[in-house]
Design a protein around this nucleic acid. Structure first.
Length: 690
DNA sequence: CGTCTCCAGGTTTTT
DNA sequence: CCTGGAGACG
C-alpha cells in the first residue's frame, strides 16, 4: 500500500538497525551532484526545483524525504504529492527501500487521494456523509443524461459529453458563466444538488471541496497545518489552479514546501494545469531557494541535442539547457513504413532483433503513441509476433463492463443512496424491475426529494402499493438481497466471500451466458469478474492493511483508473511497454519508439483546431516523448493510415523537421517503385505470405 | 418484458 | 470498421 491514511500511526515492520545519523546523511548524499544535494538538504523554507528531463528529479524527492526522516522529522508530518497513483506508489517504494528509519504515517498520495482523505474527515462540514461515492466520468455522464431528461434537454451522448466537459471547466474555474451556456445554468445547479443528494462527488469535487473546507473552516485548516508541516510536490508544472490553491492553504504557514517541476514538460493544460503556478509560487514564496537541475543522466548526447533543439522553438520558457556527460550514442532513426500495420510489424521486428542482439530486456522498450486508439495496430502486431507487451492506459480492467457491473453492486452496498449505480444494477441481471417500474420509483423519489433507494424502501412498505403483487415480491427480494449483503460486507470480514456469494446469488454467470452467444467470451468475462473478487481478497488479506473496509477499497479502485500491472513471474524477461505519451511522463526506457509521428496526430489536429496556441503544448508533448529515451530512439510515420474504413494519406509530423538533420537517419524500405505501386506490391506480398 | 436488427456516429491527452 | 443505442417485434 503506497498510501497511508493520515491520523493513524502505522508501524513499519521491524526496522533494520538504525545506523548513526551522520553516516546515514553522507550515504544519502554521496550519489548526488551538488545541485541535487542542495535540493535534498534544504528542508526548511520554500524550495523551487526546476528539474529538466532525466535530471534525477525522482531521486531528489525520495532522497529528500529520506533525509528529512534521518534528521528526525516525524514521518506523519510529511506530505508528498504526486500526479499519478503510479508515481505515488513508486515514490513510496523508493523511500522505503532507501530509508532505514520508520516511515509509518508518511503520506504520499496524489492530489485527488489527498482530497478524498480530507473529505472523509471533514466532508460533514459541507454536508457530505463519509461513505460518499466517487463518480468517474461514466457515472457522471449517466447522471447528466438523467438530468437532461428531467429538464427536457437533448440527451445524446455527444451532447452529454460536452455538458460534462463544460461542467468540469466551470468547477475548476477555467471558465465562467459569461463564456457560454447560460442555458445550462439550471442544469448545472441541479447537477450539484443531485450529487449531494446522492452523497456522491465527481473528480473535480475532490479538489474543489477540500479547498472549500480549508478556506471556510479555520479549525479544519489549522488541524491540517498542524499535521503537515513539510510538503513536497512532484510534477509541479501539471498542477491546476485549484490544486495550487489547496497546496498553498496547507503550507503557507509552515512555508516548508518543496515543489519540483519542469515547464518544458507541462502537458496537461487542457485539464487546468498551468505553468502560471510556477510564477505564482515565486510570488507567494519570495524567500524561496531556486535550484536548477540541468545535468541529464538518462539520454545520449544525440537524443539530448535533438530534444533541446526541438524545445528551443517554444517561446517564454525558463532558460534551461540540458547537458550530459555521457556518450554520443547512435543517431535517431526515422522510418516511413507503408501504413500503420507495416509500422507495427517493423517495430515488433526491431524490438525482437535489438533485444536479442544487444541483450536488452523487453521491459526496457517503450513504444509511445499520441492517442489510445493507436495502440491497437501495435497490439495486433505484437500478438502475431509473440512479443509480450503491456499496455497502460486505455480501457482499464476496472472500466470493463462486467467488472463495472459488479463494482456497481459494491458501490450500492457502500452507499445505497448512489442512484447512478443503483439504476445500473436494479435490473441487472434482469429481474423484472424494468423501465415501467423505474418510472414509478424515480417519480416517487423526485416528489419526495429523496434518493432512489429511499423511494424503493417506501414503495416496499407502502400500504396501498401501486405495484403488482409480483413486482412487489421481486422488489422485496431485491432489497433483501442488498440489505443482507450490505450487512455482511460492511462488517469488513470476508468481503471477498460475501461478494462471491452475491455474484452467485444474482446468477451473474447465467446472465453472461444469456448475453453472449459466444461461450468463450462469457467465460472470459466471468474470469474478469473473478479477478475482481481476487483483487478484493488480496486487499483484505494485505497484512499492511490495518483496517480494511469496502469504502477504502472502492476509493482505491476509483482513483486507480489506470490498471495496475500485476508483477507475475513471467515478467522476469519483461514485457514491452506500450502507452500514450501522456502516460509515459516520468518514465524512462533504454529504447523508445514513437509510432505515428504524423501531421494531424502530433500536433493533434483537434487540439490545433481548438486553439492555435496549443502548438507549444504539442511540442512539449513531443519533447516529453523524445526525452524518455536513454540509448536508442526510433521515430516512424506511416505514409497512409486506415481510418474509419478508408485508407488515408499521412504526412510526417512537422516536428520532425525541427530536429537536427545531422542526427537523423532515414530508413528506406528496400524498394525503388513509386509509392502507389509499392502499396500494391506490399499488399500482394502480404497476401501471399498469409 | 425481452430480443433482434438496423443505423448513426466517432475518444486527445487523465484524476 | 466497430460500437452502442433506438426502435420494432415476438
Amino acid at each position: 500500500m503506497w498510501w497511508l491514511p493520515p491520523f493513524t500511526c502505522w508501524e513499519c515492520r521491524p526496522c533494520i538497525s538504525l545506523s548513526n545519523s551522520s553516516t546515514m546523511h553522507s550515504k544519502l548524499l554521496q550519489s548526488l551532484n551538488s545541485e541535487q544535494a542542495k535540493a535534498v538538504t534544504t528542508i526548511q523554507g520554500p524550495v523551487l526545483v526546476l528539474a529538466g528531463a532525466g535530471s534525477g528529479k525522482t531521486r531528489v524527492i525520495t532522497h529528500r524525504i529520506s533525509y528529512m526522516l534521518a534528521r528526525g522529522i516525524p514521518p506523519a508530518s510529511i506530505l508528498g504529492v504526486t500526479f499519478t497513483n503510479k508515481a505515488a506508489r513508486e515514490m513510496a517504494r523508493r523511500v522505503r527501500s532507501l530509508c532505514r528509519s520508520r516511515t509509518g504515517g508518511l503520506t504520499i498520495s496524489t492530489f485527488h487521494a489527498f482530497g478524498v482523505q480530507l473529505l472523509r474527515q471533514s466532508g460533514e462540514l459541507l454536508g457530505y456523509r463519509p461513505h460518499f461515492s466517487i463518480y468517474d466520468s461514466g457515472d457522471q455522464q449517466a447522471l447528466i443524461k438523467e438530468l437532461c431528461r428531467e429538464h427536457g434537454l437533448p440527451e445524446d451522448p455527444a451532447e452529454v459529453r460536452k455538458i460534462a466537459a463544460l461542467f468540469s471547466r466551470l468547477k475548476t474555474e477555467q471558465q465562467g458563466w459569461d463564456g457560454a451556456g447560460e442555458a445550462y445554468r439550471a442544469l448545472y445547479e441541479a447537477y450539484g444538488r443531485r450529487l449531494k443528494l446522492l452523497n456522491a462527488v465527481d473528480f473535480d469535487d475532490l479538489i474543489r471541496l477540500p479547498r472549500q473546507i480549508l478556506k471556510n473552516y479555520p479549525e479544519a485548516l489549522e488541524a491540517c497545518r498542524q499535521r503537515y508541516t513539510y510538503m513536497l510536490v512532484d510534477e509541479f508544472q501539471d498542477t491546476s489552479l485549484l490544486q495550487y490553491q489547496l497546496l498553498r492553504l496547507v503550507c503557507s504557514s509552515s512555508r516548508n514546501v518543496c515543489v519540483v517541476g519542469d515547464d518544458d514538460q507541462s502537458i496537461y493544460s487542457w485539464r487546468g494545469a498551468s505553468t502560471v503556478n510556477i510564477e505564482s509560487f515565486e510570488k507567494d514564496f519570495p524567500e524561496r531557494l531556486e535550484i536548477k537541475l540541468e545535468q541529464n543522466y538518462r539520454s545520449t548526447r544525440t537524443i539530448l541535442r535533438a530534444a533541446n533543439e526541438l524545445i528551443a522553438h517554444n517561446r517564454g520558457r525558463k532558460s534551461k539547457e540540458l547537458w550530459s556527460a555521457g556518450g554520443e550514442g547512435s543517431p535517431i532513426h526515422v522510418a516511413l513504413p507503408e501504413d500503420e500495420k507495416r509500422e507495427a510489424e517493423l517495430i515488433a521486428e526491431k524490438i525482437h532483433s535489438l533485444s536479442q542482439r544487444l541483450k536488452i530486456p523487453l521491459r526496457e522498450f517503450g513504444v509511445l503513441v499520441r492517442t489510445n486508439v493507436l495502440t491497437r495496430a501495435l497490439e495486433e502486431a505484437f500478438r502475431r509476433e509473440n512479443l509480450p507487451y503491456r499496455v497502460s492506459g486505455g480501457m482499464s480492467f476496472f472500466l470493463r463492463k462486467e467488472v463495472k457491473d459488479i463494482i456497481a453492486y459494491l458501490r450500492v452496498l457502500a452507499n445505497p443512496d448512489d442512484d447512478v449505480n443503483l439504476l445500473r444494477i436494479i435490473n441487472l441481471p434482469r429481474r423484472g424491475l424494468g423501465p415501467k417500474f423505474l418510472e414509478t420509483a424515480v417519480e416517487l423519489s423526485r416528489r419526495q426529494h429523496c434518493s432512489l433507494y429511499t423511494a424503493l424502501k417506501a414503495l416496499e412498505a407502502a400500504e396501498n402499493s401501486p405495484l403488482t403483487p409480483h413486482t412487489a415480491d421481486v422488489l422485496r427480494d431485491f432489497l433483501a438481497l442488498v440489505d443482507q449483503s450490505r450487512g455482511m460486507i460492511l462488517s469488513g470480514r470476508e468481503m471477498a466471500r460475501t461478494l462471491s456469494w452475491l455474484i452467485d446469488e444474482i446468477n451473474y454467470w447465467g446472465y453472461l451466458l444469456s448475453e453472449h452467444k459466444d461461450g468463450n467470451l462469457a467465460k472470459w468475462k466471468y474470469e474478469n469478474v473473478m479477478s475482481l473478487v481476487n483483487s478484493l481478497a488480496a486487499y483484505e488479506q494485505d497484512p499492511d492493511m490495518i483496517e480494511p473496509s469496502l469504502r477504502q477499497y472502492l476509493q482505491q479502485i476509483s482513483l486507480n483508473s489506470q490498471e495496475d500491472e500485476e508483477d507475475d513471474e513471467a515478467d522476469r524477461r519483461g514485457k514491452v511497454n506500450l502507452m500514450t505519451i501522456h502516460a509515459a511522463k516520468g518514465l524512462e526506457f533504454r529504447v523508445v519508439f514513437i509510432a505515428g509521428c504524423e501531421a494531424g496526430l502530433i500536433p493533434h489536429a483537434r487540439t490545433m483546431a481548438e486553439n492555435e496556441s496549443n502548438l507549444e503544448e504539442e511540442r512539449r508533448l513531443f519533447y516529453v516523448a523524445l526525452t524518455r529515451a536513454g540509448e536508442h530512439l526510433f521515430l516512424s510515420t506511416p505514409r497512409a493510415r486506415r481510418w474509419r474504413g478508408t485508407l488515408r494519406e499521412a504526412a510526417p509530423s512537422p516536428f520532425i523537421d525541427e530536429l537536427p538533420r545531422e542526427h537523423l537517419q532515414f530508413e528506406e524500405e528496400e524498394e525503388t517503385v513509386a509509392p502507389e505501386d509499392a502499396t500494391a506490391y506490399f499488399s500482394a506480398l502480404k497476401d501471399k505470405l498469409r
